[in-house]
C-alpha cells in the first residue's frame, strides 16, 4: 500500500496530475450544470406543448415532434447519442464546436427529454382550477402557464428535478467517449500512466459521492425555503 501511495503521490503532486483532475472536475460540473439548465428550458417547453389543448393542427404537429424527440432521447443510450451527435450529426450539419460544448448540448438535450416528463407530471398535478381561474381573468394560455401553473409545478417536482441533476452528474462520466477530459477521464489517465488504478479510482468514487451529497443537501435547503409559502401567514 505504501508503494501504491508513493506512485500516486508522484504522479498526482510531483508531475502535476492534480491540475488535470481540477480541470476535469470543472468540465464535469460545466457539463452537468449547463446541461441541466438546457434540459430544464427544453423540458419545460416540451411539457407545455404536451399539456396544450390539442385544438388545432399546429399544436398536434408540435406535439408529434416532441413525442419523436422524447422517444429518441429516451430510447437510445447516452453514449450512442454522444457518438452520433459529435462524430456524425454535427460534422454533417457543419456545426463546429468543441467537444466540451458538444457534450453540454447533447447532455442538455438528453436531459430535456427526461425533464419534460417530470415537468409534465408536475403540471398535471397542479389543480386544473388554477389554469381555469387564470384563463377566466383574461390571461392567455402561455401567460397563465408561466405566471400560475409552472411555478406551482416546479415546487412539486423539485425533489425529482434534484434527482435528475444527480443522475446527470453521474452520467457525464461517459463524456470521454467524445474526447472530453472530465474527472473520470482525468483519474483514468493518472491510473493508466503507471497501471496503479486502486487509489485514483477510489478517489474518483469519493469525489462523485461528495458532489452528490452536496447537491442533496442544497436541494433540501431549497425545498425548505419554498415550503415556507405554505406555512407563512
Amino acid at each position: 500500500m505504501q508503494a501504491k501511495w508513493e506512485v500516486f503521490y508522484e504522479k498526482f503532486i510531483t508531475y502535476d496530475g492534480w491540475r488535470t483532475v481540477v480541470d476535469g472536475l470543472v468540465a464535469t460540473l460545466e457539463i452537468s450544470v449547463f446541461g441541466l439548465i438546457i434540459g430544464i428550458v427544453l423540458g419545460t417547453i416540451i411539457a407545455a406543448v404536451k399539456v396544450m389543448p390539442k385544438t388545432n393542427i399546429f399544436v398536434r404537429l408540435l406535439s408529434l415532434i416532441c413525442d419523436v424527440y422524447v422517444g429518441f432521447f429516451r430510447g437510445t443510450p447516452i453514449v450512442v447519442q454522444l457518438l452520433v451527435g459529435y462524430f456524425v450529426l454535427f460534422p454533417a450539419l457543419d456545426v463546429r464546436i468543441s467537444a466540451l460544448n458538444a457534450a453540454i448540448a447533447i447532455f442538455g438535450m438528453n436531459s430535456g427529454a427526461y425533464v419534460s416528463e417530470i415537468m409534465r407530471s408536475g403540471i398535471q398535478a397542479v389543480d386544473g382550477g388554477q389554469l381555469e381561474a387564470a384563463r377566466a381573468v383574461g390571461l392567455s394560455f402561455t401567460t397563465s402557464m408561466v405566471k400560475v401553473v409552472i411555478p406551482q409545478a416546479v415546487k412539486n417536482i423539485l425533489p425529482t428535478l434534484g434527482n435528475e441533476f444527480i443522475v446527470l452528474i453521474k452520467e457525464t462520466s461517459v463524456a470521454s467517449f467524445i474526447t472530453v477530459v472530465d474527472i473520470t477521464k482525468a483519474f483514468k489517465d493518472i491510473g493508466s500512466s503507471n497501471y496503479e488504478y486502486i487509489i485514483p479510482y477510489l478517489m474518483l468514487a469519493a469525489i462523485y459521492l461528495v458532489l452528490v451529497m452536496i447537491i442533496t443537501f442544497a436541494i433540501k435547503l431549497l425545498e425548505r425555503r419554498l415550503a415556507r409559502v405554505d406555512r407563512r401567514s
Partner: peptide, 27 residues
C-alpha cells in the same frame, strides 16, 4: 372579452403561488 366577464368558482381557485395581494393584482 374575458377581462370584462368576472368568474367565481365553487372551489375558489385562488392562485396558490401568490399572496392575496398578488392574486388580486396579477391580471
Amino acid at each position: 372579452s374575458r377581462r370584462h366577464i368576472g368568474m367565481v368558482f365553487q372551489q375558489f381557485n385562488l392562485f396558490n403561488n401568490k399572496t392575496v395581494m398578488g392574486n388580486i393584482t396579477l391580471a
